[in-house]
Design a protein around this nucleic acid. Sequence first.
DNA 1: TATTGTTATACTCTATAACTATA
DNA 2: TATAGTTATAGAGTATAACAATA
Lengths: 192, 192
Amino acid sequence: MRVPANRPALRVQPSGAGEEELELTEEGGVTDDALPGAEQDSPTPASRRLHELIIQLGRYRSLRDPLHGICESNQLTPTQIHALMWLGNDGPTHVGVLAQRVGITKKTITGVVDRLEDMKLVERTRDAEDRRAVVAQLTTEGVKLFNLISRSVDQGLRRMLDLLPADDQEALFGLLERVLKRLGGPASEQAL
Amino acid sequence: MRVPANRPALRVQPSGAGEEELELTEEGGVTDDALPGAEQDSPTPASRRLHELIIQLGRYRSLRDPLHGICESNQLTPTQIHALMWLGNDGPTHVGVLAQRVGITKKTITGVVDRLEDMKLVERTRDAEDRRAVVAQLTTEGVKLFNLISRSVDQGLRRMLDLLPADDQEALFGLLERVLKRLGGPASEQAL
DNA sequence: TATTGTTATACTCTATAACTATA
DNA sequence: TATAGTTATAGAGTATAACAATA
């Protein structure tokens, strides 16, 4: 599937205004042999449609690059930016919690915070209440950088929003707010 | 800003049903000293609103973890999954193009493809028309794995869609389609 | 000369396992 | 004993710079 064998994808341009099909996983009966348990349910029309849209959007680097540019222009890795963002948004945070926010293990966060500390962007202190725990927080310089990054992110979002008419923007906000409400609601036992 | 100094963020639970403010970058006049050029424009109400919503959503790992789980259950790194997805969707691809899709440099893609080739998931061949170029494509085993991953992604999307009523789903699709149309349209010179 | 990939080097990210300190 | 972080180790990702082959 999707391996025409004689038509290598050579251009980087989103395949937009040219050929328009995009089969994705259909006719994908190939691996329908006894899967190991948990994934025998197949895609719904809606999930497949969203999947296709996301792939299409992924072809436009202009939608993903902003973050990349922020990393480069500040000489920081994505993980470091990620950690700084959470520290800026949440204030002083246990490093273990920070690890979960960033999506890495406790062992890994140690090295990340080490390097941010070397750069004088973050400070470590002991939590007085639980002396096992270490609290990380932004330094003054770290806060400055956080504000700079925040503004860059905001500009990237602005460029995206500019692609939508005002009523679509409102629709998007309402939609995201309803998702948030659902997540915070009854089903929140499964969330983290 | 956002560094209360006496209220470390200790819990990982989304701050949802508790305190609800979330100032973000406001009062952030701190770094308003002569920025180096390109970023003196400040956030619009809409971009700030989207920014806040995204941060809120980011607190729910249940929305981000699916990918993580896919990586672990297949013993692959995020970059490797990413490369496999594009190869599955686009078919045989110049490794340079693949690098751009994944968002890494040509030097880096070499190592990534090396490891995928070691795992027998990808094959390299020379492009007959341009003998400088190397074409990467999935092996039979690679295609199988691609289908498996695709299905996992689909399930993650399905769980997200389940948080939205049907009319919101339709609204989302329409909205994304309009973004795509805009990107493919007149403004596409800036896109990639 | 310009372009496509690769090689070599160095640093960061990441997970696993073993360890220390505190609860 | 259980929990919060760190240390040590090893493999993968990443960029930079130098290089090879082709156009």
